[in-house]
């Protein structure tokens, strides 16, 4: 009887430890979602090039995450990328001439949308579209331009 008891205690301890490890793995190592909103509204923006922007990428304003990208699509008519994102409904006073640009966090970091407030009296609402957008900076294009400039300035000096 004593032996059964210690076996049961040991097993209970083991399973408890296992479950708390599973809990730790599923909650502490994942998510990191600093965006939680009770209600949201959807806004749309069109970009020439979105780089490597993915769904679930953060949408920030002044560095604070206020929304999240929900859908990335390609418009075959205008040949542009269409990005849908949601914004926390408590921020309902964002001017409708706000501009959206795709930025990169850190040198190798992931891409996100940064909003820069405009000055309009009208506010963004569900279904509105951001008209002023700035595409992602693609490193290869940047290097290409740099090399081109370096090449031409060499010719100038010769």
């Amino acid at each position: 009887m004593r032996q059964t008891r210690s076996v049961e205690i040991g097993t209970g301890l083991f399973v408890l430890l296992g479950m708390s490890s599973l809990f730790f793995l599923t909650t502490q190592t994942t998510g990191g979602d600093d965006f939680k909103a009770e209600s949201v509204y959807t806004v749309e923006a069109r970009f020439e090039n979105i780089g490597s922007l993915r769904t679930r990428a953060p949408v920030t304003m002044s560095g604070v995450t206020i929304g999240r990208v929900t859908k990335v699509a390609f418009d075959a008519m205008t040949l542009e990328a269409v990005v849908h994102f949601v914004i926390d409904a408590q921020y309902d006073q964002i001017p409708d001439d706000t501009d959206a640009s795709i930025l990169t966090s850190g040198i190798l970091g992931s891409q996100y949308i940064g909003l820069q407030a405009g000055g309009s009296d009208m506010y963004l609402e569900d279904g509105s579209e951001i008209l002023f957008t700035q595409s992602a900076i693609v490193l290869e294009n940047l290097i290409g331009k740099f090399l081109l400039n370096a090449g031409s300035s060499d010719e100038d000096s010769d």
């Binding site: 059964t4 076996v7 049961e8 040991g10 097993t11 301890l13 083991f14 399973v15 430890l17 296992g18």
Partner: peptide, 16 residues
């Protein structure tokens, strides 16, 4: 279930 608990102890708790 008692038999299984004993084996969980042998395989699991004692491998901790």
């Amino acid at each position: 279930l008692g038999l299984v608990v004993k084996q969980v102890h042998n395989a699991g708790a004692q491998s901790l």
